[in-house]
Simulated scan of single mutants.
Amino acid sequence: MKILLIDDEEMSLDFNEIMLKELGGVEVVGKFTNPYFTLEQLEVMDVDVIFLDMEMGAVNGLELAEIIKSKYSHIEIMFVTAHAQYALQAFEVNAVDYLLKPLNKKRLKRAIERMQEKLDLYKQSKKKVAFKEVNFYMKTFGGFHLLDNQKNIVKWRTKKVKELFLFLWQHNGAPVHKAIVMEQLWPDIHAEKAAKLLHTTVYQLRKTFKEQGIEDAVQFNNEHYSLGLLVDSDCTVLEGLLKDNKMESSEVEQILTLYKGDFLEEADFRWVTPIQQRLRQSVLQYLEQIISVGEVNLLLIEECLLKMYEVDCYNETYMYNLLAFYEHMGSSQKMKEFYKMIEARLGDDLGIEVPIKIKKSYGHFVE
């Protein structure tokens, strides 16, 4: 395990290095008192874990941890500090542990052992995945299916086999404790029976991919399950586009094409809803930004407005904006057709009338 030490006190750095060397099995690859210099050196250093102080003059350890994790997601952070009050915030930036100064040898040993277990899990997973080609592509919006490299749809033995695959996949290769899997997939079943169902489902999932030529598609280490294969998906592509936040027409068109409906919209899995809501909101925010900037052609703006209404068809603002767009373009026929659609949908689905603001806008147009 390669460890880097960051602290604004030389004495603390030396003490921590001595403690770590006494434990054995670790290598201190560097000690820095300057956090900014550390960020430069990380580009050329091989580091598994960073021991990080919380308060270093004007530099806050939490902020530095966020920067490090955003650029080097594989590096683990372990805070070593005299300030106990930051413990909760430390774990919010995915720190693996929070040790108080001066270091206690017994406590440090336990922390290093747990850290080594986590690193071993990660390296085993990466090693197995590295030798597998990306043979699968998954469509998750507006319905779900998994395609093999021959474009054939993978068939699932049971609904739970499919759900287990999706639940492990959406963790992006990270190991998931079996208790969490059982809680999410079999929430109302006694633990002993849920464990049996989990073992059966894992067996069936492994068998499904073994027929595709993939051995050990589901890996199990230290009570944790992880998916041992790579899968491309429309969801991965969409999230990448949203993260880039580019406003060019080609990106907008790609997002509109990809987002055909909610993520796994036909699934009734309990863990899916928060993901659906997050993705839906991200898409709507992106489209709202496109509309406000207005640097794409009018046809594309219309497509964005239609997609926003399609995603959230009871949103009064989206109704009004699309009507206003048709009025601005002088498209009287489209405006009339859309108003009738609003009127019918609100009346049939909710038993309510068209909002006053929209009535007035439409009335002004047809007068």
Rank of each mutant, 00 (worst) to 15 (best):
M1R: 04
E9V: 09
E9C: 03
L20P: 04
K21E: 15
V28Q: 02
P35C: 10
L42H: 10
I50E: 08
F51P: 06
F51G: 08
M56K: 11
G57A: 07
A58K: 13
G61N: 10
A65M: 05
Y72D: 02
I75P: 02
M78C: 15
A84M: 07
Q85E: 15
Y86A: 04
F91M: 06
V93G: 03
N94W: 10
L99D: 07
K106P: 00
R110F: 10
I112T: 04
R114S: 09
E117G: 02
Q124V: 00
K128E: 12
V129S: 05
A130K: 01
E133A: 14
F144D: 02
D148T: 07
Q150P: 00
K151R: 13
V161K: 12
E163Q: 14
E163I: 03
F165A: 07
W169F: 12
Q170T: 11
A174E: 12
I189H: 03
A191M: 11
E192A: 11
A194D: 05
L198F: 05
H199T: 10
T201A: 07
Q204I: 00
T208H: 06
F209T: 05
Q212L: 15
E215A: 12
D216Q: 10
A217K: 05
S233H: 04
V237G: 00
L238T: 05
K246H: 12
M247D: 12
S249E: 14
E253N: 11
D262R: 12
F263V: 04
L264C: 09
A267V: 00
D268M: 08
V272N: 04
T273I: 07
R278P: 00
R280S: 08
Q281P: 01
S282M: 14
S282L: 11
Q285Y: 10
V293R: 12
V296S: 03
L298R: 11
L299Y: 06
V311H: 02
E316Y: 10
L322M: 13
L323G: 07
A324L: 13
Y326W: 09
E327Y: 13
G330W: 04
S331P: 00
Q333A: 13
K334T: 01
M335V: 05
K336E: 14
F338I: 01
F338W: 03
F338Y: 08
K340W: 08
K340M: 13
A344H: 13
A344W: 09
L346V: 02
S361Y: 15
S361A: 14
